[in-house]
Design a protein around this nucleic acid. Structure first.
Lengths: 346, 346
DNA sequence: GTGAAAGCGCTAACAC
DNA sequence: GTGTTAGCGCTTTCAC
């Protein structure tokens, strides 16, 4: 059987080897002040030669901190259509910040549809006692979840789509503005009939995107026309249905902006099936810059949310709350990614 | 500032409330024998009323076990093309097993191209002392990684593509066989000229797939023809190049089997660009059943590796090594997923 | 069946 | 600057 403590050195070993007390070792390990340079070097040498690594459990127990950050996000396996890129970006950003600060990342996909989410989260908190929680959209807009997190008293930073005013404990992106920009970009290509496919109405992010679309229309001097707005549910299939509906209009749109890439992929698929050429006959734009955006044919123009950067920023904030004031903004800008699916009207 | 211990009950509180010693509480919590039913109930009542949750750090420190399983996989963010579905499946399976056994999952994406992987892993092990390690392909075939894991002495189960004989500490899938099946399926549709696009030669899994293709050819009575075998590098672009090459042959293939979905997507893209219809003129099959397989047009026939099931099984094995003998096999079968990209020759 | 006592390896006061 | 002394909350002998 495996013995985790086979050959592990402890503070005592190091202290003895360096000829100091364990407290001094502790000080060196934790980069605390009040250690003479010479002493520090002796201790560090001992640490190296003994290959000493602090025991996390002991440290956590004594300091009442776990050195763990929990990343909580909507469980993608609860879906039919995987939005996997988002989750991986979140993990990537959070991991970057954790590594830099010597923290561990605990991931917790969470199915908000489950009745027992609150208890589940309570158990998670009680068992692992994370030092901080990163709560990703769309969970950050679900009262049930937010309340459970609040009740724990554990510091939490939310990731969410943009708002007028940014709360201190949130990292946001300018999703509405960027959607306005995308719409204006389509208009600048000469498109006058720009349609929009809305996403799942339950997600707040979706309404922001639609509002941005409206902003973009008016900024471009185009009138809103509700015939060009259809409701989807964020799935590919709903994108196909939306496109069918739009392309059957007597005056079909020459550009379709979908609230996510899955639906945009559905739109291109339905269009191709009808023999509509992209982008010659129809420009298509999505949102998310998901992996599939570059994989479908033609590759989708889309909007890249800075998910990784947001998660990284949120994690930093939790690890060092003083960052709130100093470097880095809590509004992380999204960007438009131009690909093959948009172009001037033929 | 947040105090994690605000209102937490400890074993002592529970013991006092139940009128027993802390050892008895410990026995109840850990489901050990030698506790009278009546006593057990009293303790459980006290636990409930005090909302007691054991402190993980203390438990880990005392028991010298971390209750943490580490999942180590190839860092997808080190790639240009994201193979995100795989990672999420792994996480999903491992999380399922962890939840069932009250373990935590630590994820560790690992860039094997980095010079410092060994040290990085050593640090990870020393700091978190996982009770077990799940090592996913392709890392499970990289000596540098495997050796670092071995050196730690921590129990490890590898996930890997199929082999003749399955080592006890590995969970495998029958990838070669299933590729033979796919090839035979294409032949059964009437295809005589079946091409293969190889993937990144550094990954062992790739050669298995190619061997399966050869098996399938001979099982179907078709001769191997090396003009129909091209080398890709697992990227979409290489799939496009491969298709260009194959479709320019005087006798172009009527079916192309690519060693992964990305390349298969590239194949369909290049074919569509040339006006080749799928599946009327050309059948295309991929491998991975990645999210994009259902998203490209036409949707790709592919092979689904049971990644989640494999990770789950591996995690179970680590948590309860006795399972090696009993329930569940360590060979988890892959399956063919038929979609729109394959059909009989027109 | 149950309990008492001794740590696990570290951090945190506080003394020097 | 550095050391001493207590614990953190649990598991683990081993005694009863």
């Amino acid at each position: 059987m495996y013995n985790p403590d086979a050959t592990r050195a402890t503070v005592d070993d190091v202290a003895q080897a360096a000829g100091v007390s364990i407290k001094t070792v502790s000080r060196v390990v934790n980069r605390e002040p009040n250690v003479r340079a010479a002493t520090r070097e002796r201790v560090e040498a001992a640490i190296t030669s003994l290959n000493y690594r602090p025991n996390a459990s002991a440290r956590n127990l004594a300091s009442a901190r776990s050195h763990i950050i929990a990343l909580i996000y909507d469980d993608p396996s609860a879906y039919e259509a995987p939005s996997s890129g988002y989750v991986l970006s979140l993990q990537e950003g959070a991991l970057r910040a954790c590594r830099a600060a010597n923290r561990e990342l605990l991931i917790h996909p969470c199915d908000y549809r489950s009745r027992k989410v609150s208890e589940e989260l309570q158990t998670l908190f009680a068992q692992t006692r994370p030092d901080g929680i990163v709560l990703a959209a769309p969970l950050s807009n679900m009262p049930k979840i937010v309340n459970a997190v609040k009740a724990s008293g554990i510091p939490c930073v939310s990731l969410s789509p943009g708002r007028a005013k940014v709360p201190a404990n949130a990292v946001v992106t300018n999703d509405q503005d960027i959607c306005a920009e995308m719409t204006a970009y389509l208009a600048s290509l000469g498109h006058q009939r720009i349609a929009f496919v809305q996403g799942d109405a339950k997600h707040k992010a979706v309404s922001n995107r639609f509002l941005g679309y409206l902003d973009g229309l008016s900024a471009s001097g185009l009138a809103r026309n509700d015939h060009y707005v259809v409701q989807g549910d964020s799935s590919i299939a709903s994108g196909e249905r939306g496109a069918e509906q739009l392309l059957s209009l007597p005056q079909p749109p020459t550009a379709i902006f979908a609230a996510n890439d899955d639906m945009a992929a559905g739109v291109t698929r339905a269009a191709l099936r009808r023999g509509v050429r992209i982008p010659d006959d129809l420009s298509v734009a999505g949102f998310d810059d998901s992996p599939l955006a570059q994989l479908v044919f033609p590759a989708l123009t889309s909007i890249r949310q800075p998910s990784a950067a947001m998660a990284q920023r949120a994690t930093q904030l939790l690890i060092n709350p003083d960052d709130i004031d100093n470097g880095g903004s809590n509004v992380v800008p999204a960007s438009i990614v131009l690909r093959e699916s948009t172009g001037p009207i033929a």
